[in-house]
């Protein structure tokens, strides 16, 4: 019907196409973020001699709250998935939009944090710490932003296509992507913010 798997009658590895593709993409993303964070660690030993050091500028309570928000968005995402499996479309939609909203909240928190940091004199070009910090968190933020767009596109799909199971798998893939963005933040939060 909608994908080749329906007409396919041969050998496979037992994972639906779209899910397999998403996991392959996520394997690539894992390397991507590992390299990203490794660049930060690579330069980290030089940070303590800078004018603005990480421990001067980070506002841990604030970032903890926004980490918590992102963590909870993972919960709402998985709830939306669970409701979708149970064919409860209206709740699915509610949880999808909640997830998107929490993501937006996280992003606005990050933008707020950036403005404060810039006012305090930490910019991309002010020091190697600024460069590495904005590079890593900026790329994560970009991923969150793409995730939010996809969430709203999927919400729109569900509006149009109420009961058809056509988008079932794309919701699963989207959820995988969103959780991936979340776990990356878990690592970034620890390695960049918490470790002295």
């Amino acid at each position: 019907m909608n994908s080749l798997t329906h007409v396919h009658n041969g050998e496979d590895v037992g994972v639906p196409n779209q899910k397999l593709a998403m996991w392959l993409f996520l394997s690539s993303e894992v390397v991507f973020f590992a390299v990203l964070i490794s660049i930060y660690l690579f330069y980290k030993s030089a940070f303590h001699s800078l004018q603005i050091t990480p421990s001067d500028i980070f506002d841990i309570p604030f970032t903890s709250v926004s980490s918590f928000i992102l963590l909870m968005s993972s919960l709402t995402m998985v709830l939306s998935q669970n409701h979708y499996e149970r064919e409860d479309i209206s709740k699915t939609r509610i949880w999808i939009y909640t997830t998107g909203f929490l993501g937006l909240l996280f992003i606005s928190g990050q933008i707020y944090e950036y403005t404060i940091f810039i006012n305090e004199g930490l910019t991309i070009s002010s020091s190697i710490f600024g460069t590495a910090f904005y590079f890593v968190t900026g790329f994560h933020g970009l991923h969150v932003f793409i995730g939010i767009m996809l969430l709203f596109v999927t919400g729109m799909q569900i509006h149009i296509e109420d009961t058809n199971s056509k988008f079932g798998l794309s919701l699963d893939s989207l959820a995988l992507y969103w959780h991936c963005v979340d776990i990356v933040w878990i690592v970034i939060f620890t390695i960049i913010y918490l470790i002295p």
């Binding site: 080749l4 798997t5 396919h8 041969g10 050998e11 590895v13 397999l20 392959l24």
Partner: peptide, 11 residues
């Protein structure tokens, strides 16, 4: 990759 893993013909 997905093609090779999932769309092979019977046998």
């Amino acid at each position: 990759t997905v093609t090779t893993l999932n769309l092979r013909t019977k046998g």
